[in-house]
């Protein structure tokens, strides 16, 4: 039953992420992106990573996407005032896209059919175990990434501050 649920949710994720690119209206794109994130949350739950699932739910669906939607609603982009792209840009885009497809197919070919992933510790995703891992063996990388986030936050605040002359 687990694999059939996985394939169903995986198909949904692919469909909705395609809808993100294909829909003309930017607000609709963001809404499809939210649904895509929701299917990713389901994937985490299927992997028994409850904490990661709920954090993905809160941070991506609940906060970041709200801000995306916020900005897009304010900008109110319409088809009429969208700048027309020149033919050169279109040609370059098509070539770049084709290169990407070739690269992806090549790398998929190289990996062949991977073995099914077996989790060494299936309960790693529960809050207590995850916390013990993060603050035990992975203490340094965890703290470094939090410093990195703090730096980004300070940078964002500095950027919005008006310069005092």
């Amino acid at each position: 039953m687990g694999t059939s649920v996985f394939y169903f949710v995986a198909a949904l994720s692919v469909i909705f992420s395609l809808m993100v690119i294909f829909s003309k209206n930017p607000v609709h794109s963001v809404l499809y992106l939210i649904v895509t994130f929701f299917t990713l949350t389901v994937h985490y739950i299927l992997l028994n990573a409850q904490f990661l699932a709920v954090v993905n739910f809160i941070v991506y669906m609940g906060a970041i996407m709200v801000l995306f939607l916020f900005v897009l609603m304010l900008l109110n982009l319409n088809k009429e005032n969208e700048p027309l792209k020149s033919n050169l840009v279109k040609v370059v885009g098509v070539i770049a896209g084709c290169c990407l497809v070739v690269t992806i197919i090549g790398s998929l070919k190289a990996t062949a059919i991977s073995d099914p992933v077996l989790l060494k510790n299936p309960n790693l995703g529960l809050v207590k175990n995850l916390g013990k891992e993060l603050f035990g063996p992975y203490m340094l990388p965890f703290e470094l990434s939090s410093v990195l986030l703090l730096t980004a936050m300070v940078g964002a605040v500095l950027l919005t501050k008006k310069e005092k002359v």
Partner: peptide, 18 residues
């Protein structure tokens, strides 16, 4: 009784604005 119950509530609250 999921073991991230509080976070679940928090997530649902943050979705409420949609």
């Amino acid at each position: 009784d999921i073991n991230v119950g509080i976070l679940y509530i928090f997530g649902v609250v943050s979705l409420g604005v949609y």
